[in-house]
Design a protein around this nucleic acid. Sequence first.
DNA 1: TTTTACTAATCAAACGTTTGTTTAGTAAAA
DNA 2: TTTTACTAAACAAACGTTTGATTAGTAAAA
Lengths: 214, 214
Amino acid sequence: MEYNAKQIQIIEVAERLFADKGFAGTSVRDIAQEANVNVSMISYYFGSKEKLIEALFAMRMGESRSRMETLLSNEDLIPIQKINVLIDSAIDRLMGNQCFHNIMMREQLSSERTPTITEHIRTLKLRNIQLMQQLIEEGQAIGAFRKNIDLSLMTTTLYGTINYAIATQDFYKRINGLEDMEEAEFQIHLRRKLSQHLKSLFKSTVTNEHHNQD
Amino acid sequence: MEYNAKQIQIIEVAERLFADKGFAGTSVRDIAQEANVNVSMISYYFGSKEKLIEALFAMRMGESRSRMETLLSNEDLIPIQKINVLIDSAIDRLMGNQCFHNIMMREQLSSERTPTITEHIRTLKLRNIQLMQQLIEEGQAIGAFRKNIDLSLMTTTLYGTINYAIATQDFYKRINGLEDMEEAEFQIHLRRKLSQHLKSLFKSTVTNEHHNQD
DNA sequence: TTTTACTAATCAAACGTTTGTTTAGTAAAA
DNA sequence: TTTTACTAAACAAACGTTTGATTAGTAAAA
């Protein structure tokens, strides 16, 4: 599906509002007003409000297709470096599309699921976990990584930490006395902190450099 | 505030529906029907739909007051054991109140904030991080823990991982081939796995047993 | 060149439903 | 009698969607 300029404008406004107020909490009139279009244009272009959010997912999913994968397969890095690239790439992806990932998070919290959206999310999560699996197995093959690593929960920690950090960034600001920092600067600060934290976490957990297991 | 049996019944139904479909996605008629009461009882008892969710927060916050704190101050455990108690207690609390914490998560994702609820969440998060701080400082004081630990992000990883694991438990089931496991059994399984994973993660990250820093 | 036929984009208005809340009333309890 | 617990009905407002009309543009026919 290709979208014209006006359709993209509507989708982008909808994305911001859905992230702010939820799908049910956003009216088509809200979207129309902010996007400076007539209410009926949403039905005209997308068929329904429901199909608008599906169009949003279709668009964003189409964009993100395999950026990480190529990033990793080419270079000849050692396993822990590849893990670090994976971490930074996940941080960039989530922090750079906060609205969309906010909507994805809401969708996963909900039991009122749209099949096509559920499928999109499943595909994305599968891709993420398989990439992680590949990297960890590479490290294990050359004896650099521990044998018993819980793949699912390692992935859960990676994405759970980033998502939760984004969701609670106001609290983070306040706790760390960064309320006066400029927004753009704060975003960079948070990225760097997350990067350091997650790399340190993964390094000490997956590598073989320490005795483990209780 | 004290609530009678019927009020509690309404609150508990509302909690389940808000968790499933979101606040805006749940109508007062949905709640009334599932709770077998007249629609007007919600306004009668709580004043408004908005004040109903505030009552829910008031009730749940009142329940959870300082269970962990006492659990930790008494016993004479070594620092890493206290961290382990903290982890298990957080898992129990979040897994045992999935609906409520689902609503809390949604509330944090939203920018349409009710001041009293925001304040409740802030209080809870502050309590969590201060407890973590206390335990980590104890460990650092006797030289058992590393010096430079990012307190905020350690807490973010703890709660982020648990919350995300709960939100994506269907995916976890499928990935690990546990679709046929009975629900109660699965909940226990997930708790144990989370416990092992987080304890291993924290142990290797906060203790001094390895060289660190890049 | 002018006319005709057709299409896509846009609009204000209206449609029927559902929303949260209020009202007016009833019946039992105090 | 007054208070409390509860209800059915009604309310205005907001909801997603549809409608019929208008505009601007294109392309073939005259």
